[in-house]
């Protein structure tokens, strides 16, 4: 896939950084403000999709990116499972038990394990959407080469 003109490339470069920071903010502040893992993860995926659409890439490089995104997806969901299973062993023996100290309501470091779940599932959602998008693009490229 060919990229677009240099003006579009530069604007996409500048915008995607800001969108990325906004997505990370929404994921990290998920327990205080509207948003959370699912919203922030999709915004992060949107930033990457903007970059891919603007710059284009070789099929081989896209394949490498796809391997990375599907790996991080699997690792993130594995981390969620481990964190939930530790709750089964600690404290009141309940799956998904919130065993970390709660802190005061309204501060950034509070709500026990909720922010960690948010970050892990944010990575998982972003990686899943990027994987789907990359799979569609690679399929299209391979059909054109044939």
């Amino acid at each position: 896939m060919k990229g677009l003109t240099p003006i579009v490339k530069k604007v996409a470069q500048l915008m995607s950084g800001i969108i990325c920071i906004y997505g990370i903010y929404i994921v990290v502040h998920g327990h205080l403000t509207p948003g959370g893992a699912f919203a922030g993860g999709i915004i992060l995926a949107g930033a990457f999709i903007l970059l891919i659409l603007a710059f284009g890439s070789e099929v081989i490089k896209l394949r490498k990116e796809e391997t990375g995104s599907s790996m991080s997806e699997s690792i993130a969901i594995l981390g969620t499972l481990i964190l939930a299973t530790v709750g089964l062993l600690v404290g009141s023996k309940v799956f998904f038990h919130n065993y970390l100290p709660k802190g005061t309501i309204g501060e950034l470091v509070s709500a026990g394990a909720v922010p960690i779940y948010n970050i892990l599932i944010g990575i998982e959602v972003a990686a899943a959407i990027i994987t789907i998008f990359l799979a569609l693009i690679i399929f299209k490229e391979e059909e054109e080469q044939r």
Binding site: G36, I105, A111, V114
Partner: peptide
């Protein structure tokens, strides 16, 4: 849950499964 956003609290504590 200690979370100010009640939706996230329900999502990750009461309804984690």
């Amino acid at each position: 849950t200690g979370a100010a956003n009640l939706v996230t609290g329900v999502l990750w504590d009461f309804r984690g499964y």
